[in-house]
């Protein structure tokens, strides 16, 4: 049996986490908003998509829209929900923001469990509408899905790159570094942050959540626990918080490395030990990296370093020359 479809599926999942990590990087890496509510945003987007596409006569009835319309709808809904959550929480600072977003994500998951009529509760939503599934054999579909995930990743990457090269991205990083100073030069810091949160919500609902839904095939609340949030964070930290591509690379490395463990063939009696090895491997990967490359595989300074003139380089690297020049 070929392992190719397996790897296509692993990579699809890696790209989902990678997209979420690129978006998290905009708000947390550049914006300094350490958001622990990613799973909540993805859940809002995923359930919005599922309910917009689900036929009106299904077990969990929906609107029966085509997939692309549902993607747009999910994007808008997630954007509005994010802005509504962001409006009060973004007034909080540091760990207070962190814990509040964490709480909101859990509230969203509990709402999904309780609102059985709307979401199917813990039984979930099955019969997900996967785009173009009718044109391909089920055995070929993992590759189609990988292609769709890759296309969505390219879009997220384009947005992330645009942000990193824009006045907005620069302002975001400045406000993170020194908020009073940013205000003193006319930046409406609160507005910039809410807009950022809304942008991340829009992209999450439009691209991340639908691809995650296609990958899952069926929605249950258990797919949106804090495990998802921490996976995205781990990917971003491994890749490099504040870098341009770190989130994507880190997330793909992380998922591929941890799924590769499954391919090790062992006696059935050791299978549970192998399963326990997976989180162990992630932990080791993280510790090794943070010990030797604390900024991640890529770094913010590396990402935004201008092509310095040779003279600049000498002076920057040599504090004594710097003193001499500036005296």
């Amino acid at each position: 049996m070929s392992t190719l479809p397996f790897w296509a599926t692993v990579l699809t999942f890696g790209l989902v986490i990678g997209m979420a990590a690129l978006l998290l990087n905009i708000e947390a890496g550049w914006g300094g908003m350490w958001d622990l509510g990613i799973a909540g945003q993805v859940a809002v987007g995923a359930y919005s998509y599922a309910l917009l596409t689900s036929p009106p006569d299904a077990v969990v009835p929906g609107l029966g829209l085509p997939f692309w319309a549902a993607m747009v709808g999910a994007g808008l809904i997630t954007m509005i929900v994010s802005a509504l959550i962001g409006w009060p929480t973004l007034r909080l600072r540091g760990e207070y923001f962190l814990i509040t977003t964490f709480a909101f994500a859990e509230i969203i998951r509990q709402l999904i469990v309780i609102q059985r009529g709307l979401t199917g509760g813990t039984f979930g939503v099955t019969g997900i509408d996967k785009p173009f599934a009718e044109y391909f054999l089920p055995s070929a579909y993992p590759f189609i899905l990988l292609g769709l995930a890759a296309a969505a990743t390219v879009l997220v990457l384009l947005v992330s790159q645009r942000v990193s090269n824009s006045t907005y991205g620069l302002t975001l990083r400045a406000a993170r570094d020194n908020e009073p100073l940013a205000r003193s030069m006319g930046t409406a810091v609160d507005r910039v942050r809410i807009a950022t949160y809304a942008l991340v919500g829009l992209m999450t609902g439009l691209l991340v959540a639908p691809v995650y839904v296609w990958f899952l095939g069926a929605l249950v609340p258990a797919s949106f626990t804090t495990h998802l949030t921490f996976l995205v964070w781990t990917g971003l930290v491994i890749g490099g918080l504040g870098s341009r591509l770190g989130g994507l690379i880190g997330a793909v490395v992380l998922t591929v490395a941890s799924e590769a463990v499954r391919l090790i063939s062992v006696d059935p009696e050791h299978a549970s030990r192998l399963a326990a090895f997976q989180p162990f491997l992630v932990g080791v990967l993280l510790i090794v990296l943070l010990r030797w490359r604390p900024e991640g595989l890529l770094s913010e300074r590396g990402a935004f370093r201008k092509r310095a003139k040779p003279l600049d380089r000498i002076r920057r690297d040599d504090p004594q020359t710097l003193e001499a020049v500036s005296a």
Binding site: Y168, L170, G186, T187, R191
Partner: peptide, 14 residues
């Protein structure tokens, strides 16, 4: 950042 500060407001323009 300082030179453009006034117009740097959100992701819309970017």
């Amino acid at each position: 950042v300082a030179a453009g500060g006034h117009g740097f407001d959100g992701p819309q323009d970017a």
